[in-house]
Design a protein around this nucleic acid. Sequence first.
DNA 1: TTTATATCGATATAAAAATACCGATATCGA
DNA 2: TCGATATCGGTATTTTTATATCGATATAAA
Lengths: 216, 216
Amino acid sequence: MAEKLSIPLPAYNRLSMYLTCLKRRPATAAANISATAIAEELGINDVVVRKDLASISSGGKPKIGYIIEDLIRDIEHALGHDTAAEAVLVGAGNLGKALLAYSNFEKYGLNVVAAFDSNPNLIGKEIQGTKIVDPARIQDLCERMHIKIGIITVPFDSAQTVCDALVAGGIRAIWNFAPIHLKVPENVVIKNENMAASLAFLTKQLEESIAKDNSN
Amino acid sequence: MAEKLSIPLPAYNRLSMYLTCLKRRPATAAANISATAIAEELGINDVVVRKDLASISSGGKPKIGYIIEDLIRDIEHALGHDTAAEAVLVGAGNLGKALLAYSNFEKYGLNVVAAFDSNPNLIGKEIQGTKIVDPARIQDLCERMHIKIGIITVPFDSAQTVCDALVAGGIRAIWNFAPIHLKVPENVVIKNENMAASLAFLTKQLEESIAKDNSN
DNA sequence: TTTATATCGATATAAAAATACCGATATCGA
DNA sequence: TCGATATCGGTATTTTTATATCGATATAAA
């Protein structure tokens, strides 16, 4: 009976921030760091940092803080960077290519073993070392290779079809970049990447920020 | 004294989902829709939908629901799709190109007036109708054109430099795709797009989902 | 005209997240 | 050796967000 820890998304965002901070620390710096120092660098509350770290690390020590090397390892483990999950990507357009190129997924524990695209000029070629395959083979290939993760970067009008093929092939997790709500069985998890919403949020914050200027 | 309404990010995500749902409804469908129906289609709670819509729309009617046409207009307004904010993009690599191509930002109320890239082969050319300019001109161009939004799609090691140039040019909002925590003055708002965290979240949910299988 | 029902919107409760507070402890300096 | 201090980690409080409940109302049917 596995406990349901279920760290919330904002916490993953923060953990990821801690990690980039820690990793880019100069080698000459101290071997340990306090939650307070991390919080200050990122401009967030120190209790949040301590709580996040408590949930995933082996703990820090009073007056010392956390050992950076251990902390990096613990965060990487929490983020799954030390496990190699296999995935396929569907849609090798601009966004698909960008993702294939993006920081080499392997660093984040993801191994994209194949990419599908219906463009006949692409099929058979390689992009960033990933072979482009005919989408007709989605189900078959996913089944044979026991792939569990699918990345959807096709236009919205083919996204549901692609999604269905992935699910038929046994995919259990979908990272969806198409601006559409995909319908999947209950046992398939989805993470939607909603650029329009992010943009709207930013624009709104900008408006508020400028309104604040004017009220002062 | 403007009130601080400050709709949270998840609400923007939902509003965006409502919008795509409503817009792709067949023209033959009814002219009105209930919050319950929207909720069911998206697999979320109906009270959440009603609350979201109450905060941005002119309201629905018992037994009828909301008039779809009006609702679309209200949501678009809330998301800022009916205002044309001008922005610049820095980094016309794969991701930058993908964003320039992505669903034509104009639909979302964003007008990318220039893109910067240090690659001499790109400078002076156009991508998706957007001119590529030397990054040395970031500050000058942003100032002259009174641009308020900057999109950063450069590698992490040049992100802070680019960010500083944008801020120097008067940028007040930054949409950051580089995996780094940018330091900005207090009056500049930032929206980080953290792919690594999204991926980690999805992977973790997948693990939980599979663990659930095995416990049954 | 009257009754039944779908649906809204307001209020109330519950859950989750962020923040504050405080005692415990490991190191450093006296 | 002993006290001062930084910092952790647990508990408590507040805030935010999500969910449930319920009366009010507009339409449709009887």
